[in-house]
Design a protein around this nucleic acid. Structure first.
Lengths: 159, 159
DNA sequence: TTGAAATAAGACTGAATTGGTACGATATAG
DNA sequence: CTATATCGTACCAATTCAGTCTTATTTCAA
């Protein structure tokens, strides 16, 4: 089973949750409340995500985190890259690849690159907006801002 | 960095090496010689791979492993599945998915499924033959069967 | 100017996964 | 019957990962 780390999984969940109220500035405890994640964990992930261009942080009193782009303009690929680094299958293909014994002449390079291109394209194509689409339907809109109603735990399964 | 485990990586390397002499029956020590992997490790992976339809094993004296299909008919997806199980990104989507709190109504399911379909398609499309293609070129053909010349370590990088 | 609120950054720990090895059992050819 | 293989399982060491805690640093407001 190829799976991404829980941290990455959580990252996507957090971003999806924030995308439902794109204008609002949320603190780490807020996010914890909405996602069910422990506060320190949520804080840790937000910290990492805030280094990316799609999430800004505001320090000090009344600070917090806010999306700096519309959900439709934030791809899943970006979120994963923010937490895991470049997306590639097989360490052979990563940027720092000075580990591979045969380097440029690696016979398998071509095959893996094809696979990686397809994966990246798929991740690039799916946006945060796509992820929340069904959510909107389920709740049939009308979600008042600041309602403070925690969503049902929308964490991906823990394995 | 999404990466597959070393074992899977090794598995692909082993299969690629075997694909260069598709008719030959190879023992674990043979494979070790060709790939540079320690014998016990090679044996372990071969054992696992042999449970799949594309690799058969013969026990006893003069036994060993042999491809049961042409390299062009063995996809990378099959090899990865043999070692890691079903290929899916996010544990949420795996078959046993009774872990996910919201199950069928998971708002993100749609997005992840799209991503997984693309990944699987890419893996399905690349075959062992594709992987070895460049190798043939590098050695400019004329590889006598049973030559016993170990290829240069074609392991993917270790990270 | 001072205090409270909030994030930033990094160290640290316990647990889970993984890579790798070893050993005994089983099967086959000669 | 013996030598040569795979098969299956159990095991250990090392790495990685999730999660927590502690200590700055920044900002708003009284």
């Amino acid at each position: 089973m190829i799976k991404l780390s829980k941290m990455t999984d959580y990252g996507v969940v957090i971003m999806s949750e924030m995308a439902r109220l794109p204008e609002r500035t949320m603190t780490a405890p807020d996010v914890s409340l909405y996602t069910g994640l422990p506060v320190p964990t949520a804080a840790k992930i937000l910290r990492v995500l805030a280094k990316s261009p799609f999430l800004t942080s505001q320090r000090g009193a009344h600070g917090g985190y806010q999306l700096s782009r519309k959900p439709a303009d934030i791809s899943i690929a970006e979120i994963i890259r923010a937490i895991e680094g470049p997306v590639a299958v097989t360490s052979c293909v990563d940027e720092s690849g000075d580990d591979c014994a045969v380097e440029e002449r690696c016979p398998m390079r071509g095959g893996w690159e094809k696979i990686n291109r397809a994966l990246n394209a798929a991740l690039e194509e799916v946006t945060l907006a796509d992820m929340c689409l069904d959510t909107e339907k389920l709740n049939s809109g009308q979600r008042t801002p600041n309602a403070g109603v925690p969503s049902p735990l929308s964490l991906s399964g823990v394995k």
